[in-house]
Simulated assay, not measured.
Amino acid sequence: MTQNNVGALVVVKPGEQKSIAGIITERDYLRKIIVQGRSSKSTKVGDIMTEENKLITVTPDTRVLRAMQLMTDNRIRHIPVINDSGMMGMVSIGDVVRAVVSEHRQELDRLNAYIQGGY
């Protein structure tokens, strides 16, 4: 994660690239390895990941504000995006914040144009 500057990795089921077994985050590593005094070399990812049955996911049709609400309510920073075929990608809190800021910026531009008579 450090080498690739990512805060979470999706764990896939053996032989099934789009089938999610769970997710491992920097927070999982910190709380379940560092704090508990475990060894990174001998601890398996499966022992510290958030398992599939506890995983919070969204679909490609989920609205950005809904994803933000799920992240806020569950105190998470990453949500896998899935559809009927399996995993499609991952959304981070940074992605969500950028989308909301962009939307607000566009709305401000429209309002400014309206006020200035640009319509």
Rank of each mutant, 00 (worst) to 15 (best):
M1I: 00
T2M: 12
N5R: 05
N5L: 13
V6D: 09
G7D: 10
G7Q: 01
G7R: 03
L9V: 11
V10L: 03
V10K: 04
V11N: 02
V12P: 05
V12D: 06
K13M: 10
P14E: 03
P14K: 07
K18M: 06
I20H: 08
I20C: 04
A21R: 02
A21T: 08
A21H: 08
G22E: 01
I23P: 02
R27Y: 04
D28H: 02
D28M: 01
D28Y: 02
D28L: 00
D28W: 05
D28N: 00
Y29T: 11
L30N: 02
L30F: 07
L30C: 14
K32T: 00
K32F: 13
I33A: 07
Q36R: 08
Q36Y: 03
Q36T: 13
G37F: 00
G37W: 03
G37C: 07
G37Q: 01
R38V: 03
S40M: 11
S40W: 13
S40V: 13
S40L: 09
S40T: 15
K41P: 01
T43M: 04
G46L: 09
D47K: 01
D47I: 03
M49T: 00
T50I: 05
E51N: 15
E51Y: 14
E51P: 11
E51D: 07
E52S: 10
N53L: 13
N53Y: 04
L55S: 04
L55W: 05
T57K: 02
T59Y: 03
P60Y: 00
D61Q: 12
D61C: 13
R63N: 15
R63Y: 12
R63C: 11
R63P: 06
R63F: 10
V64F: 05
L65S: 11
A67D: 04
M68G: 15
M68H: 13
L70D: 04
M71R: 14
D73H: 10
D73Y: 10
R75V: 11
R75E: 06
I76W: 00
I76E: 06
H78W: 11
I79D: 00
P80C: 06
V81T: 04
V81L: 03
I82Y: 15
I82D: 12
N83Q: 02
D84E: 14
D84V: 10
S85D: 14
M87N: 08
M87T: 11
M88K: 07
M88V: 10
G89R: 03
G89M: 01
M90T: 02
I93S: 07
G94H: 07
G94P: 06
G94W: 15
D95N: 10
V96F: 09
V97C: 05
A99I: 13
V101H: 10
S102K: 14
S102N: 11
E103P: 00
H104F: 14
R105F: 04
Q106P: 08
E107D: 03
L108E: 03
D109P: 06
R110D: 07
L111V: 02
L111W: 03
N112H: 13
N112K: 09
N112L: 14
A113I: 07
G117M: 06
G118C: 02
Y119W: 09
Y119M: 13
